[in-house]
Structure formats: C-alpha cells, structure tokens
C-alpha cells in the first residue's frame, strides 16, 4: 500500500504581485532564508490569499530574486507572490507591512504585467559607509581601482574558493562629497555620518555576482585600503541600467504602465 499525494483542489493563481521591500537597521542581519521564513509567516498572519503548489508538501507560490547578502541593508529587494483572488496591491502591501517586524518593510507592490522581471534587474546601486576612514585614502584607492582593467579577488562560495574579476562589473564608483553625506537622512538610516566616508557603486549583475565586499577586497588589493571599522552597506536601488547616465531605473516601470 503505497501512499499517494492526496488529491486536493487548490485554487489556481489568478494574479501575481511584485513586491519591493526594504531590510533596515538591525534586521539587515537577516539572511535570505531568515527573510523567507518571516515572509511566509507574515503572509499567513495577514491572511493574504497566496496560491499553493500541488503535491505531497504544498508550498506557497513565492519567488525571490537576487537577495542582498546577510549584513547588508537594502532599500530595494524584490519578491513575487501568486494569489488566488484578484487583490488590490496597496491593501496587500499595507497588510504585509504590518505583519512583518519593523525593519522588514514593504515599500511598494504592483500587479505583474509580464514574466520578464528577473531580466529587468540589470544592476544595483550600493552605498558603502566607511566609518572612521580617511577620505583622501579612500578617494585614491577608488581612483586606482577605476584605472585598472581588471582586479581579481577571491571569495568563498558553495563550490569552494573562486577567483574572479571585480572591476568590469563596476559601472560607477563615487566617493560622495561630505555635504551630500550629511544631507542624507533617508530611510536607509545612516546612524551618524560624522567621520564617515561614503562610497556609492553602480554594479552590473554578472555571474558570479560582484558584491560590495568584493569591491572592498579589490580596494584592499590595489591600494591596501583597510577600513578601520566594519563598513555598513546598503543597496539603494536595483533595476534596468541606463548605461549613459549610470542610473539604475525603477524595475516596476513596465508593470505600472501595464496596469494604468
């Protein structure tokens, strides 16, 4: 007598919702798996009519893209859920936001208009706060880095230690003027900008992906730049890259156009 997956009538997916969320403050230490668990529970608490896969152990239909590393904050993470009832994205966003702990915050929800979303995430804009760092030294290191054609770095991955180029993917690297750093009191919540050098990067998504810590490794490699305190990293944006202006655009653009 073998066991079979019970036959159940699962309501089909009638709508896909794309969600932009932020990982802020102390909850930037959540790993991708931590966030997955938190979101699934928030969906249940909020009563969002999520669709389930069929089979022995049904799973909620949620797909994640391109999550920021553990320890990095982010203003622009994306996830997509399938629902069984046509929903108002604003209501779902508000309900999920209040069901998630403060620090995991829903920023925006749109109705998916096509299934090409992953391809839209071409690049990220990152902000790296280097506390107690020497501005001139950082500027010099960045200049050396940008002048190079290739800077090889190493990172431990699932497949083992890999060596790859951290330079080509970096489209822009800019040390912000002091004034800009102080003006920024946005949601990213930079604790104190005093004595802090801010580096912004625009990095094209490649395989293997080049992360901010890889760029920091590269700066160390080319110019011996060693931040005195652990740097604080925030992803500010993720989306289509305008190669001329180096601007990272809103990936929800086509969805908004499709709805309205």
């Amino acid at each position: 007598m073998s066991r079979q997956a019970p036959v159940r009538d699962f309501a089909p997916t009638v709508q896909r919702l794309r969600i932009r969320y932020a990982k802020r403050g102390r909850l930037r230490f959540t790993s991708h798996r931590d966030f997955q668990r938190a979101l699934e529970r928030a969906i249940r608490r909020a009563g969002v009519p999520v669709a389930f896969s069929t089979g022995f152990s049904p799973h909620p239909k949620i797909s994640y893209s391109n999550s920021a590393p553990t320890g990095a904050a982010s203003e622009a993470e994306y996830v997509e859920i399938g629902v069984t009832v046509e929903c108002d994205p604003g209501l779902v966003g508000a309900a999920l936001d209040s069901a998630l702990p403060p620090g995991l915050d829903i920023v925006d929800v749109v109705i998916a208009s096509s299934s090409d979303f992953a391809a839209r995430l071409e690049a990220s804009r990152w902000r790296i706060e280097l506390h107690e760092a020497d501005r001139a030294q950082v500027e010099a290191a960045v200049a050396t880095f940008l002048a190079a054609d290739e800077v090889e770095v190493q990172r431990l991955m699932k497949s083992g230690m890999r060596t790859f180029d951290a330079r080509a993917a970096v489209v822009e690297a800019l040390v912000l003027p002091e004034l800009d750093a102080e003006l920024d009191t946005g949601a990213a919540g930079a604790a104190d900008s005093n004595g802090c050098v801010i580096l912004e990067l625009v990095v094209r998504h490649t395989t293997p992906s080049v992360r901010p810590d890889d760029v920091l490794s590269a700066l160390r490699r080319v110019a011996d730049l060693v931040p005195p305190a652990p740097p604080r990293v925030t992803r500010l944006a993720q989306g289509p890259l305008d190669p001329v202006s180096c601007k990272v655009n809103d990936p929800f653009g086509p969805d908004r156009a499709g709805v309205e």
């Binding site: 929903c87 108002d88 994205p89 209501l91």
Partner: peptide
C-alpha cells in the same frame, strides 16, 4: 484584499 475600484 479585493480591489474596491479606482483605488489602485
């Protein structure tokens, strides 16, 4: 979560 019309 149903759209109430004109809201979105």
């Amino acid at each position: 979560f149903v759209a109430t019309g004109g809201g979105a």
